[in-house]
Design a protein around this nucleic acid. Structure first.
Lengths: 342, 342
DNA sequence: GTGAAAGCGCTAACAA
DNA sequence: TTGTTAGCGCTTTCAC
């Protein structure tokens, strides 16, 4: 593979000139430029980006740390981020952290060595200590989907507490009282916030949460399935389920149907995320929608801005997006309303 | 950020020794090693991987070119690949090509500049010409999911033709005659092969394919929806649909239900891929299953083998995996069988 | 407008 | 076992 020296020699110019043709073409005479461009073409010269990165101290690479690329919400986020990055001239490292704090730390170590220009942490498990740790490296980063209070960093997130509150409140308004919650892993901050939102709504309405009615799941379909199975076996069958994400909600629905129960007649279900599948299962899933794709775009733009004008750094942004309730069939809304008014 | 020279100075050794401690620790005396390790720790030294890559001519980075990360089949593939890569010490660039040949070419250009150690092309649109083009660069690569005949390359793929044939044959055996096909984009090789498999089964059974019964979709849910809507409006309503992937099949099911028709009673549906959702929609989707995750693992291992012992290169492997039929409810199998035997 | 040369931070060959 | 030093391939400053 030819290098810049060989190109220079062949074109009868200096390496500096070849470099200029590539990076500041306006600083080269038309004639020379043409000659160089021709030899580049002829020799099929591909500039070595690694050498370039070393000289410039810039890799044009960002990294994306994501808990589980299989969850549509995360893959959508990844899509938005990669799209912006590509468009702005960056490549994106995909790092699947599997909801594992240790793996997340390990990845960051590696990425620091690879000198990525910045990274995006999605629904990260890291704590303030970790983050202060690599903040010293002075590398730009953006946090998406985990609300780290009192952290001076760029953060894009949804109000999970409020979303959970809205979901629960909606179930209560329809008339359900015995409501259970299938949560994501308790170690995750968004799980905690959803639990809080759930409890807040219950308490405000003077409803009690039954023993064992907050169940930990793994954020995947199977977790929802298992959680629902456990709830169904309990002494008191819940009337309604608020599930922390749609994937688990769909799993829970599967479990309910498997048991021969019907949704929402026997058990109503509300999810969170509004993934595409939510409106394709039967009954269609009522859920809390958050603007995931947009969060990806915003996060990526924020990161790249931070990378490119690190002069006026230190103005961190917290972008806070509001969730929305999407009423569909699985919560039995129309069913109950009818019951009430007839 | 400290560099190796500063560490060496601080530790009172040469840069070579520091480098050795990092790369060949056994070649350094215990005492020196400890001293160096300590100063590294103390100075919070993070070796510069870019400089390392330049010196070694190896980046420990691979790239993954994928048509659409939103399709669960591709994200599962991505997961398998990233997992193997990470485990073997490689990072993975995510490149979403959006089923766009030009974008694919552009990405490859960039990746060549970034000197990735190899790449994996998933369901690529590139033709032999393109591939011969970068084959000259002598960079290892693996093709997954597109059967490029007569191409001397590492390829992992499923027998799409056979899968499609099996799906169609199954519908025919149950008793359907007026069968339509919703295809992926015609520009894709797997689409072509599925169409061929579909036609083969029809012809072998002396069944004719009605005018307009092979419809082009976009491989996404919406494509299936639109395709089914078009078919439903036709003069003759198809009795059964073979849909080129599960995402579109689910979209098609949605369209059928929207129209007030029932599955499989009015129209039976068979998909392809066996994504997790296939068994969660109502009725559960009969489909052709392919070992996607496994393909990812195999592909990644193959690539990394190729990168690491480029000595004994030139023995390209073609790994050919067999699809399986998964009979569920959407094709009306049991329904028809009952009909026949009662 | 162009060229010479220093430097980016590392590895490994060679010498001691 | 350790140090010296020549690259790796590029960009950019400085001089002309």
């Amino acid at each position: 593979m030819a290098n810049i020296r060989e190109v220079a020699k062949m074109a009868g110019v200096s390496v500096a000139t070849v470099s200029r043709v590539l990076n500041h073409p306006e600083a080269v005479s038309d004639k020379t430029r043409k000659k160089v461009l021709d030899t580049i073409e002829e020799m099929k010269y591909t500039p070595n980006g690694i050498a370039r990165s070393l000289a410039l101290n810039k890799t044009s690479t960002i990294a994306l740390l994501i808990p589980n690329i299989l969850n549509p919400i995360y893959s959508r986020l990844a899509m938005g981020i990669e799209e912006v990055a590509h468009q702005k001239g960056y490549n994106t490292f995909l790092c699947n952290t599997e909801e594992d704090k240790e793996k997340e730390r390990e990845y960051i170590e590696i990425l620091l060595e690879k000198r990525v220009d910045g990274f995006i942490l999605i629904s990260s498990l890291l704590d303030k200590g970790d983050i202060d740790n690599f903040r010293k490296e002075n590398i730009p980063f953006v946090i998406i989907g985990s609300d780290l209070k009192d952290l001076d960093a760029n953060i894009v997130y949804t109000d999970y507490l409020k979303g959970a509150y809205m979901a629960t409140q909606h179930l209560i308004e329809i008339g359900y009282k015995r409501i259970a919650h299938i949560s994501g892993p308790f170690k995750k901050r968004d799980s905690i916030q959803k639990i809080e939102g759930f409890k807040k709504a219950m308490i405000e309405n003077n409803l009690s949460i039954f023993e064992g009615y907050v169940i930990e799941g793994n954020n995947e379909i199977e977790g929802g399935y298992l959680g629902a199975k456990r709830l169904i076996k309990m002494k008191y069958l819940p009337e309604a389920l608020f599930v922390a994400n749609d994937l688990m909600a769909i799993g829970a629905m599967d479990a309910i149907k498997d048991t021969g129960l019907s949704i929402p007649k026997n058990i109503a279900v509300v999810g969170f995320d509004d993934i595409r599948m939510a409106s394709l299962v039967e009954p269609k899933l009522t859920t809390i929608s958050q603007p995931v794709y947009k969060m990806g775009l915003i996060g990526a733009r924020l990161l790249i801005e931070n990378i490119e004008d690190s002069k006026e750094d230190d103005f961190k942004q917290k972008i806070f997006l509001q969730p929305k309730l999407k009423v569909r069939k699985s919560c039995g809304h129309s069913h109950r309303i009818r019951e009430i008014f007839n």
